[in-house]
Design a protein around this nucleic acid. Structure first.
Lengths: 164, 164
DNA sequence: GAAAGATTGTTGTTGACGACAACAATTGTA
DNA sequence: TACAATTGTTGTCGTCAACAACAATCTTTC
């Protein structure tokens, strides 16, 4: 995909330079097709919407889910460690944890090793809730498979493994 | 990747339940690895940051670039048509076009066919600017190739072609 | 042809999210 | 002991998606 300039291929025009269209779906994307970022963005929007819808009953968004799984798999982690691992800013994580703590899914306890930091743990309620979330997330993942194909999804994960 | 519940595999714990870590990079993601959405989100963040950096000198963000290319390839389009094609809300497109019009890259002209709508065109300045943007975008695309591999990028585009 | 409904662009609000800056408490270091 | 760095927190700013409401303008229906 060389980005040669101005490869515009306009359709039939009306006298005033406007394009006549009966079907709005026949609008060309031109150089946009061939840009990985565009395809990835559209796919990411779709996949997040499906995740949010699938986990809608339990009211868990992707970022919340990522925090819960990491804390669940690594109990005692500090906020700084979680933020760094997930690529979340620590200021943002504060609000996320406020919400999760209000819902009794996570608890902050003062670390005795470093009294600046908080050790993060799932509550008992958080553990059982996370188990349910994981089942729903697996259902969402099956939606992805249904959309792009089982082997394509596997290949995608392999290609993007370096970004996790 | 079956999402059986609570496959937590915590590391060595201290007495208070906190996890000792010297290296912060050895934090497990547990169920997050294997979720397409997580990998895609991280990749999308990376790719957008590179796009923004690569086109930083000309101050063009991915969404602005997508609008310019679509208008450039389909002159005379209405705002509604552009919004629908790109998956942008028409309310959002208003501000995007305000900015692009202030920079003299795009102009809105009243459509004579439908006086509710605006026909969108690139200005002469917009045409030449877009050509430059496309060169920079191609450079960004080469960064993607360097990061994930040429054939992986091609495969990615094929897998996600249905979302463009 | 007139009334009712739908569409287009616009303005505004809300909430999730990333980027930054400042601050107190605490730790590490010179 | 003084100085620098880290951690959690609060706050601001800008981007972005999702809605809702509105006037102007089509489109449909009677």
């Amino acid at each position: 995909m060389t980005a040669s300039a101005a490869q515009t291929s306009p359709r039939k025009r009306a006298g005033n330079g406007a394009v006549r269209r009966n079907d709005a779906d026949e609008i060309g994307l031109d150089a946009l097709v061939g840009h990985a970022g565009y395809a990835v963005r559209r796919f990411q929007i779709w996949i997040f919407q499906d995740f949010i819808r699938t986990l809608g009953d339990v009211d868990i968004r992707p970022t919340q889910y990522s925090v819960l799984t990491v804390v669940g798999a690594n109990p005692g982690l500090s906020q700084m460690a979680v933020a760094k691992r997930l690529g979340i800013e620590r200021a943002r994580l504060v609000h996320l944890l406020d919400s999760l703590e209000q819902r009794k899914l996570v608890k902050r306890t003062k670390s005795k090793e470093d009294r600046r930091s908080h050790a993060l743990h799932l509550t008992a309620q958080g553990e059982t809730a996370l188990a349910k979330f994981k089942h729903l997330a697996a259902e969402h993942e099956r939606h992805v498979e249904a959309r792009i194909g089982k082997e394509n999804r596997a290949h995608l994960l392999r290609i993007l493994a370096g970004f996790t």
